[in-house]
Design a protein around this nucleic acid. Structure first.
Lengths: 214, 214
DNA sequence: GTCTATAGGCAGATAGAC
DNA sequence: GTCTATCTGCCTATAGAC
């Protein structure tokens, strides 16, 4: 164990925080939880992230970077708009099916936790906690939502122009609805304890965007 | 002030708890917050609701009852499926535009709160908090989601049969997607600080369900 | 029913040694 | 960088008087 590697430690903290925030929300985990999972003390975490707001911003920013990278990949590797949208939906589905304790070392059997629960897109979780978020974290959440909706709107517009997609209204409105449906479906699927609910909702929205459908 | 009216006091507690839970989530408010708003002490609240789980169940159940009443009204008063769906969307929009402090007495200027934030459907808020919810509250959330999706599926099926709606897939899948989109749109709209985002998303999904659209 | 008083625990955060 | 130790404040909850 390399006891001195700030980058690694910070990343490990963020990994643990991400898993916890995606399952329990911004107020649902503490420095104590992180410390236990990463294997250091809370004071050490404060060294890397002075306040929880700093952690929150770093978390949402890193997550946004990852999603941006993934959508850029879809732009490169997928041939048309429908395929890109399917790829985006699959991206979120992967979050939903990633084990909640898929990083960090500890946290074997929950001592007093209600029970396990699936992960949800970090954007949806922090949007739910919006009222209690520090200002800077709010800004990061807004940026994440805007970026995703803008990317979807662009893909939607391209698909319509190419004739591979058909839908009423503006691409922006459709993008907001699509993003909302996917994020909402993650919450519904988790509450139902059935990832199939997400798949069904995602497939339906995508089908509704098909040129010959509706 | 009638100092002895259990029904009224319990209702006042639930009113305050509802407003807080819709803005800040299940873990975002305390007995102390409620006590301050209702004008009694935390011990008195424990008299009406022994534990927070009891409060949570009562909260979600009462909310579900109210929505059930509203959908039953739509069944009675609206002539066709599209109109009923518009009414349902308007129902949720009303939640979003209801001031967060639309009940209880106190809570004038927030002393250390990040800022005000809109309400969101209680079902969406508690679904976000799902991992941290006591078992009985989880069950109540599941029931709420199921009931709403089932109602939407029934309306969707009737609309398709009557030719007033057209959509791909099963009514159940469409209902899940529709519900997810509306709930998700509330979160997006609040994060954006713009209720218009909800309206745009809701209008789009409803347009996508029109017989001639897509 | 509502109160005062208090328990016992966890939260985020800091000081200072190593 | 990481630690021990500690502070202050909030949380849910209970005991017992009125």
């Amino acid at each position: 164990m390399p006891p001195a590697d700030p980058t690694h430690t910070a990343a490990a903290i963020l990994d643990a925080a991400e898993a916890l925030a995606q399952t329990r929300g911004y107020n649902g985990f503490s420095y104590r939880d992180l410390a236990a999972r990463v294997g250091i003390t809370t004071a050490s975490i404060h060294y890397h992230f002075p306040g929880k707001a700093d952690l929150g911003v770093a978390l949402m920013t890193r997550y946004g970077d990852a999603v941006r990278g993934a959508t850029a990949d879809l732009d490169r590797r997928r041939p048309d708009a429908p395929s890109r949208l399917r790829g985006y939906a699959a991206l979120l589905e992967a979050v939903l099916t990633t084990p909640a304790d898929a990083d960090a070392g500890a946290a074997p059997a929950a001592p007093a936790a209600p029970a396990p629960a699936a992960r949800v897109c970090l954007g949806a979780m922090l949007a739910s906690d919006f009222a209690t978020l520090p200002g800077p974290v709010r800004d990061a959440v807004r940026t994440f939502v805007d970026e995703n909706v803008r990317w979807l709107a662009r893909v939607l517009a391209e698909g319509r122009a190419a004739g591979t997609l058909a839908f009423p209204g503006t691409p922006a409105a459709a993008a907001t609805a699509l993003f909302s449906a996917l994020e909402g479906a993650m919450l519904v699927a988790r509450a139902a304890g059935d990832a199939g609910r997400y798949r069904a909702a995602a497939a339906w929205v995508l089908a509704a965007l098909a040129p010959a459908a509706a």
